[in-house]
Amino acid sequence: MANSGVDKGRRRVLIAATSVVGAAGVAAVAAPFLNSWNPSARALAAGAPVEVSVTKAEPGQLIRVIWRGKPVWLVNRTKDMLDTLAGLAERLKDPTSEEHPEQQPAYAKNLARTREGKEQYLVLVGICTHLGCSPTYRPELAPADLGADWKGGWYCPCHGSRFDLAGRVFKNVPAGKNLQVPPYYFKDEKTILIGEDGGKA
């Protein structure tokens, strides 16, 4: 008899409302906790590795990705492009990458500036070593504006620095160093991880 005055419909509404508010409170507390497990944008920009599929680059093509807030280029060089590298030594400031060894990992200190056996794929940080502009990819041979002896490479429109198809700097230009080769390795035949060297030289 004591419960005869209880409004059961009102009780259900109050219980449902309390449950919804309680669930929202649990979600509000749990969301920041769960998000704290994910790397922040700052952490990602600070150096999280970037995975790139080499299948995206057609022969001769350059593709761009961002690593540590910097543009990084992956170029799928053709045999003709690679063949131009050997004949340029006299025109380059640091043809054997000896003067500035910090510009590439030890495994990229070779003519192609790549990992052995993967010479067609060049990975470079796309920032001019003069004042930080981003050079333009110019793979064509002997264009009118770059001269008859141009074999392909990069031209920096800011101050005229030039780099060959291995990112090596030419003489008599403002830039003093070759373009940087970041750490990277092949996870498999089709995938490069930029930002780590895979523990192998």
Rank of each mutant, 00 (worst) to 15 (best):
M1S: 08
N3L: 09
K8H: 01
G9F: 00
G9I: 01
R10H: 08
L14P: 00
A16H: 00
A16E: 01
A17P: 00
T18W: 05
T18R: 03
S19T: 04
G22L: 03
A24C: 13
G25P: 02
V26E: 01
A30H: 02
F33I: 04
L34C: 15
P39L: 04
P39H: 14
R42F: 13
R42E: 14
L44C: 12
L44H: 13
A45R: 12
A46H: 07
G47W: 06
A48C: 06
A48N: 06
A48G: 09
A48K: 11
P49G: 01
V50N: 05
E51T: 12
S53Q: 02
V54K: 07
T55G: 02
K56T: 11
K56V: 12
A57R: 04
A57Q: 09
P59M: 13
P59E: 09
L62D: 11
L62K: 14
R64G: 06
R64K: 12
I66H: 14
W67L: 02
G69E: 13
W73G: 07
L74A: 10
L74S: 10
L74R: 10
V75S: 03
R77Q: 00
T78A: 06
D80C: 03
L82V: 11
D83F: 00
D83R: 09
L85P: 02
G87N: 13
G87V: 08
R91Q: 12
L92P: 03
K93P: 03
D94Q: 03
E99Y: 08
E99K: 15
P101K: 10
A108M: 09
A108I: 01
K109L: 06
L111D: 04
L111M: 10
A112L: 14
A112I: 08
T114Y: 11
T114F: 15
T114N: 12
E116Q: 13
G117C: 01
G117R: 01
K118G: 00
K118F: 15
K118P: 00
Q120M: 04
L122M: 13
I127Q: 14
I127R: 14
G132T: 06
C133F: 13
Y137G: 05
Y137R: 05
R138T: 13
P139T: 02
P139R: 07
L141K: 12
L141Q: 11
L141V: 13
A144N: 14
D145T: 06
L146G: 06
G147A: 04
A148R: 14
D149E: 14
W150L: 03
G153L: 11
G153M: 08
L165Y: 00
V169N: 05
F170I: 02
K171A: 14
G176Q: 15
K177V: 05
N178Y: 05
L179H: 03
Q180H: 09
Y184T: 07
Y185M: 02
E189Y: 05
K190G: 07
I192L: 15
I194F: 00
G195H: 14
D197S: 11
G198E: 07
K200L: 09
A201N: 15
